[in-house]
Amino acid sequence: MKNNVNHSDCQNFIPIDVAKGYCNMLKANVVIDSPVCPKFAQVAKCKVCSKFGCPDEKGIGQCGGFKDEYWAYGEMKAVNCEMYQTK
């Protein structure tokens, strides 16, 4: 099991609500905070993007991917971000 990740960090996870979602690999509902499995595949999020830097203790940092730098938070999904680059 990986550390510091939950099911919402996985590409196979389809969210239902704030506590649970559907695992497209297991074909079953999973609780977000339950342990992830060996088939975990990291989804694009700011916290794993090379353009994201200087996060504070709350996970809020700076996005340097665009012309104007702006704040972003690490848990934000970046699957549709044109400037996303995996670290």
Binding site: V18, A19, I32, G59, I60, Y73, E75
Partner: peptide
């Protein structure tokens, strides 16, 4: 309503 704790600061 529910919100994930990690999203509260934002």
């Amino acid at each position: 309503f529910g919100i994930r704790a990690e999203e509260v600061p934002a």
